[in-house]
Computed example of a mutant assay.
Amino acid sequence: MDYRHLGSSGLKVSEITYGNWLTHGSQVENETATRCVHAALDAGITTFDTADVYANTAAETVLGEALDGLRRESLEILTKVYWPVGPQGPNDRGLSRKHILEGIDGSLSRLRTDYVDLYQAHRYDHDTPLEETMQAFADVVRAGKALYIGVSEWTAEQIRAGQELASGLGFRLVSNQPQYSMLWRVIEEEVVPTSRELGLSQIVWSPVAQGVLTGKYPPGGALPAGSRATDEKGGARMISRWMRDDVLERVQALAPIAGELGLSMAQLAVAWVLQNPNVASAIIGASRPEQVGENVAASGVDLPAEVMARIDAALGEVVERDPARTAESSPPTTR
């Protein structure tokens, strides 16, 4: 396992982060989830990402139990705040001072820790003044409840405004957590250059495009039993944008490239995102312990420029690059 600095900070994270979105507390039993976490630790992963909204707080609880008793200083625990939790009352969501300060206390309790290494704004909140949000995060840092602050799926303009306010309050944003893969490259034109300028790294989610880049969905073929595409709890909805024959045909063209490199298609996909120097870590999930080891093998893989060009040619026009797609991920104001 290789490790990279998170933005311009001194914090190092593992190139592969273990994330428990859509798995812990919902898709897999707690015992299996714990075995996946321990497999990640055995593989050299030190960075674990979750969020209060995952399985309506249950994912944080499962992760906290799985990591309980381990040396806290050897781990980087990341969580997020924004989406509705609990009974979903009017203040159970967003980035208001109330929700952030209550949210961090709830997360710490479920994660069985006194602090998180990175606390992230899970989306941009159009209903709360950015000044209020940044002040609340500053207070969380001063209280020692979070060591660093990051964001997720913020536009370049939002990151710039947030960093300006944060700097005036005595802390800095160190990371952004966007979707990024061979198929989804919307951060490349604006978010990555801005982040590089302001000292943020990317911790990217869905590097294998919800499993599509593993090649297990042949065009026109039956959906594999138990796959993300058959999951009615949310997985099928998330993967639906890629379940088109033109996309699936292009993905199959990556198989020879992976084979020549001695990589699985999943390993090729994870290695691809790690070629971007602004990416500090790629988040992988697992429903079985053996899946962890396969993805970890992507750490340290160097893809020559010629291979990167072949990947571009193979995927062609099915790649999504429009930077405006980032803004779509944050719900509009409800005022």
Score class of each variant (00 low, 15 high):
Trp184Phe: 15
Gly170Arg: 01
Tyr148Asn: 08
Gln179Leu: 10
Arg160Cys: 09
Ser175Val: 12
Arg142Glu: 11
Leu147Thr: 12
Arg142Gly: 11
Leu169Ser: 08
Ala146Ser: 11
Thr155Glu: 05
Trp184Ala: 04
Val140Leu: 02
Gly170Ala: 10
Ile149Pro: 05
Met182Ser: 13
Arg185Val: 11
Glu157Leu: 04
Ala156Phe: 13
Pro178Ala: 13
Ile159Ser: 06
Arg160Ile: 10
Val151Tyr: 02
Arg142Met: 00
Phe171Ile: 06
Asn176Tyr: 07
Asn176Arg: 06
Ala156Arg: 06
Gln163Pro: 02
Trp184Leu: 12
Lys145Asn: 06
Ala161Ser: 12
Ala166Val: 03
Val186His: 03
Glu157Ile: 05
Lys145Arg: 09
Tyr148Val: 00
Val141Arg: 07
Arg160Asn: 11
Gly162His: 14
Ile187Trp: 03
Val186Arg: 08
Val174Phe: 05
Ala146Asp: 05
Trp154Asp: 05
Glu157Tyr: 09
Ala161His: 13
Val174Gln: 02
Gly144Pro: 09
Gln179Ala: 12
Tyr180Met: 14
Leu173Asn: 07
Trp154Cys: 06
Gln179Met: 13
Arg160Thr: 15
Pro178Trp: 08
Leu165Glu: 08
Glu153Pro: 07
Gln163Leu: 07
Thr155Ser: 10
Tyr148Met: 00
Leu169Met: 14
Ile149His: 01
Val174His: 03
Val186Pro: 05
Gly168Arg: 11
Ile149Glu: 01
Arg142His: 05
Asn176Gln: 14
Gly150Leu: 09
Val174Trp: 04
Glu164Ser: 15
Trp154Ile: 03
Gly162Tyr: 14
Thr155Gly: 00
Ala143Ile: 06
Leu183Met: 07
Arg142Cys: 01
Leu147Gln: 13
Glu164Lys: 14
Ser181Phe: 09
Ser152Phe: 01
Trp154Ser: 05
Ala146Gln: 04
Glu157His: 05
Ser181Asp: 11
Val141Met: 01
Leu173Tyr: 06
Asn176Val: 09
Gln158Lys: 00
Val140Arg: 00
Ala156Gly: 15
Ala156His: 13
Ile149Gly: 01
Gln158Tyr: 00
Tyr180Pro: 13
Tyr148Asp: 02
Gly162Asn: 14
Trp184Asp: 14
Phe171Lys: 04
